[in-house]
Design a protein around this nucleic acid. Sequence first.
DNA 1: CTTGTAAAAAGTCACATTGACCTTAACGCG
DNA 2: CGCGTTAAGGTCAATGTGACTTTTTACAAG
Lengths: 248, 248
Amino acid sequence: MIEQLRGRDHAQAAVTVDLLIYTVRDDELHVLLIERGHAPFEGRPALPGGYVRTGEHLDTAALRELQEETGIDGSRLHLEQLRTYGDPDRDPRGRVITVAYLALGPDMPLAEAGTDARTAAWVPVRKILDGHIDLAFDHGVILREGLERARFQLEYTTVAAAFCTEPFTLAELRRVYEAVWGLQLDASNFRRKVTGAHGFLLPTGEHRTQEIGRPAALYRRGPAQLLSPPLLRSSDAGDPQPSLLALH
Amino acid sequence: MIEQLRGRDHAQAAVTVDLLIYTVRDDELHVLLIERGHAPFEGRPALPGGYVRTGEHLDTAALRELQEETGIDGSRLHLEQLRTYGDPDRDPRGRVITVAYLALGPDMPLAEAGTDARTAAWVPVRKILDGHIDLAFDHGVILREGLERARFQLEYTTVAAAFCTEPFTLAELRRVYEAVWGLQLDASNFRRKVTGAHGFLLPTGEHRTQEIGRPAALYRRGPAQLLSPPLLRSSDAGDPQPSLLALH
DNA sequence: CTTGTAAAAAGTCACATTGACCTTAACGCG
DNA sequence: CGCGTTAAGGTCAATGTGACTTTTTACAAG
């Protein structure tokens, strides 16, 4: 069988999955990074990930690595395939093709050091974009492309709610948009749009009282996956012409 | 090196690229299919594609297979990665991971039978969706997911112009939208939107006279890749809630 | 009990965009 | 020239949007 496959000049490659896990902490977008325990790039920060096993589905491998490397239960996350990176020189050990996954989830505590999980930590995305942190392999590229994707998804889909722990308030949801897009939104107009989008939010009828101020109504995720009408960033601040990779 | 990679239970997989090539012919969306020349699925229609070579970039492999299997020069096409399919059972020969590419291009004649190209033919997408044609492997799934993607892209990006041969008229561009979306558009409102979208179209100043009627102005593709504002399908006819895979 | 403060929620309004429809323009043809 | 045909431009009511203001509802201090 293998003989049949490698008759010509067919690349046999190791296949890995890498996980780009975004969350919002303290009103700022964070990404989960691990510190590599061995060569290549030993000691360098990197995205969690690992080899796909024989007979294992790609999605299954992503969920398994998520559990093994970070201790996070993937069932609470929004998980989707981002893109596959196959540059023949991307891994010094040989031909390694990686399928990158984008995961969006609420802020969650990480397993303490000393457990099975390696040293995993939430890192502000801004620090990486500023160039203060240099990721292993081509993970910096993956991070940027995933960020573009996430920003687009917030406009046209309901994934923003995946960043929130249910039940959540409109203010919490709005802070997700503000953190991912990196801009301020008008609370009143935001409310009008998201509550008007069919199937986005389900009111629970309950309220949550904070320290001060009027109690906020609580919501759960609705059945819709696409936002209609979309919640467009006004006049697309930031990059005037973001990369197409985000939409694909 | 290889030893290092397969120390544990690491899948070593063959890597292929598959090409989903869409075009608009006679106001109808078509896809390019080949007939498989050997097992498995011998004689069955399939997407063109083939093995990635040692040391070859994925994108390069896609362009090479395009040339080898269909005789088409990829420089005229819009080419982007769609998704990677890695079900361990998707190929009876063993573990084969395929990176699917979505290509959009103008209608072009195919190389005649007898040349290097295998029997490649444009097939109306409708025939496949209706179940009259059954594709090899999981290519039917790839085709559907790519169609969803293309439909979305037309709303938010300028790729529709990739279906047209420059220079083109607004009527030609509108028929692209109508063919891909499968609905009729108001010519007047369509004109207002696409000509108003910044950087979408560049007027050449020239006109083309058809058999009858007023001559139509000719355009070329503008520099923009994203449509702002987007050209939304009104009330999203068809699927009330299309798959998220299209956007990713 | 009243008042202040903070946040949520609701309202206002000028303006832009949209969909549906109508009118005018520019050809070739008989 | 008038007609058929297609392109291009215009009209208008309805809807959506951004910027802004006002009202509601909690807690706490006096």
